[in-house]
């Protein structure tokens, strides 16, 4: 149970960072931390005590193996997370070029 609690704490730190900080880069970092927490939660639910990695071997009878399905989902999610981070950072760089700041309260003027 303590593993889930620590994972939850990581998620809360990310959520705090997203909601509280006013720097765009800090918000991107917070989103990344939330993503890490979710991936960690999936992998934690798939872990089995005294088990092997989900790779078959010749001549070895597999008795217990970690759940490979969440691993596949998390593998997809990591790559998508990279794409999302790249997109957000591109938008942030564009905003910096336009307004000269990363502060979200100073980005108010909506000019095209």
């Amino acid at each position: 149970m303590i593993e889930y609690i620590l994972c939850l704490a990581l998620f809360c730190i990310g959520l705090y960072c997203v909601l509280r900080k006013r720097n765009i880069i800090k918000i991107v970092i917070g989103l990344g931390i939330i993503e890490y927490a979710i991936n960690l939660l999936f992998v934690l639910t798939s872990y089995r005590m005294n088990s092997r990695a989900p790779v078959l071997d010749k001549g070895v009878v597999i008795t217990n193996m970690v759940d490979p399905l969440p691993h596949a989902l998390v593998l997809t999610n990591i790559v998508i997370g990279l794409a999302v981070t790249a997109l957000i950072v591109a938008i942030a760089i564009r905003l910096y070029e336009k307004y000269g700041t990363f502060d979200i309260t100073k980005i108010r003027k909506l000019r095209g």
Binding site: I25, V28, I29, G32, N39, L40, V43, L44, S46, Y47, S51, R52, A53, P54, V55, V66, H71, V74, L75, I78, V79, G81, L82, T85, A86, V89, A92, I93, Y96
Partner: peptide, 30 residues
């Protein structure tokens, strides 16, 4: 490293590569 301990070597490799790319992108921004 946690993925490696939790018996997910594929995820550990992918996470390592993606992490390096993420760092490069974020440093480019900052």
């Amino acid at each position: 490293m946690g993925f490696l301990i939790l018996k997910a070597p594929d995820l550990a490799i992918v996470q390592l590569v993606v992490e390096i790319l993420c760092i490069i992108i974020l440093i480019r921004a900052t």
